[in-house]
């Protein structure tokens, strides 16, 4: 269904490297992903899988020292974002590609009213007057359903709760009507009921604004609720790419299977939760072959020789980076 639509953001062969002890090590390797217009792509993975680094690479917000984009391109509106000057990049950030962060409690400036903070991006990117921008800020506050928005407009962040602050952050991100919204674990710091409200609202706003959303999370429950397609990341690479239905019904990669077993479900006893043994290999000691081999129950001797490629699995658009599983389905 999404295949027919225009591609909003196209990441090709992205490689993001960090400097450790004088050498560059890749934290994201050969990452190719595309997001269609009006699509929500979830990127799932455990800590250190490179999902946040991917989002920061798209907007080139990596720390200036000790991090670089080693290879690849990020195509957006016919331009390669990795080649833009810093000034050109500034006119993309917050304007046509916006980002929401994980920590609503600390992501707002304590010395400015929320209205001023929402209006700020509008005055900069749209050249609006302060009065027009404040009027737009009020409209946005109402849109993200802040109660009595008229009076709250002039309140400071410390007068808001965590869920309210995350809504303010969303309003800030939406201020310039971005084409693409990068949401880096926007609901992780919120409690479960607020989390559900914010997710529902993000979904409504996506429809209303016609945005593409890249939703980064480690929570598969959230993925099921919001995503159209899912990319599962492990040790800096995509190990499986599928529609959300295919991923939950027919997970292909052993890591995805294991990840699904770690998720509590209402229809199963909690005793059946299985942790994944071992941990992600550090970037400084990536194995030659499959990065997941050391934790994998399906491991074959050949797995440690050569890095597997991301190849089509049985459904449309379903891809997996595991030769053993591909062999099993074919044979």
């Amino acid at each position: 269904m999404q295949q027919n639509q225009e591609t909003a953001l196209d990441i090709r062969g992205l490689r993001t490297e960090f400097k450790v002890g004088g050498r560059w090590y890749p934290a994201v390797r050969d990452l190719s992903l595309d997001v269609a217009e009006n699509e929500t792509l979830a990127i799932v993975g455990e800590s250190g899988s490179g999902k946040s680094v991917t989002a920061l690479s798209i907007l080139r917000l990596l720390p200036q020292a000790g991090a670089r984009i080693g290879a690849g391109e990020v195509l957006f509106e016919g331009r390669d974002l990795t080649k833009l000057s810093e000034r050109e990049m500034s006119s993309v950030r917050g304007n046509s590609i916006a980002m929401i962060f994980q920590e609503p409690m600390t992501s707002l400036n304590p010395t400015m009213t929320v209205g001023e903070q929402i209006a700020e991006a509008i005055t900069i990117h749209r050249g609006a007057s302060q009065a027009d921008a404040m009027a737009e800020a009020l409209r946005l506050l109402k849109e993200v359903k802040i109660p009595s928005a008229d009076s709250r407009l002039h309140d400071y962040p410390h007068q808001f709760s965590g869920g309210m602050r995350q809504r303010v952050m969303i309003a800030m991100a939406l201020a310039c009507r971005p084409k693409v919204l990068l949401a880096d674990e926007p609901t992780t710091a919120l409690d479960v009921t607020i989390q559900a409200q914010v997710l529902m609202q993000l979904d409504e706003l996506k429809e209303a604004y016609g945005m593409s959303v890249v939703f980064i999370t480690h929570n598969l429950g959230v993925v099921a609720q919001i995503a159209d397609r899912v990319a599962v990341m492990y040790a800096g690479e995509v190990v499986e790419l599928a529609t959300v239905d295919a991923l939950f019904a027919n997970p292909a990669h052993p890591y995805t299977v294991a990840l699904l077993r770690t998720m509590p479900r209402a229809d199963r006893a909690t005793e059946s939760l299985e942790p994944i043994p071992g941990s992600v290999p550090p970037v400084t000691a990536m194995p030659e072959g499959c990065a997941y081999a050391s934790r994998c129950p399906l491991k074959q001797p050949s797995c440690e020789d050569k890095r597997p490629e991301l190849l089509p699995f049985d459904g449309p658009g379903h891809q997996v980076r595991c030769p053993v599983r591909l062999e099993q389905t074919r044979g």
């Binding site: 907007l59 917000l61 990049m89 500034s90 006119s91 993309v92 950030r93 917050g94 304007n95 916006a98 980002m99 962060f101 600390t106 992501s107 707002l108 400036n109 304590p110 700020e120 991006a121 900069i124 990117h125 952050m169 800030m172 991100a173």
Partner: peptide, 10 residues
């Protein structure tokens, strides 16, 4: 919030 400001293109 400074990081968020950079992400908003300031």
């Amino acid at each position: 919030f400074v990081e968020a400001g950079r992400a908003l293109g300031f």
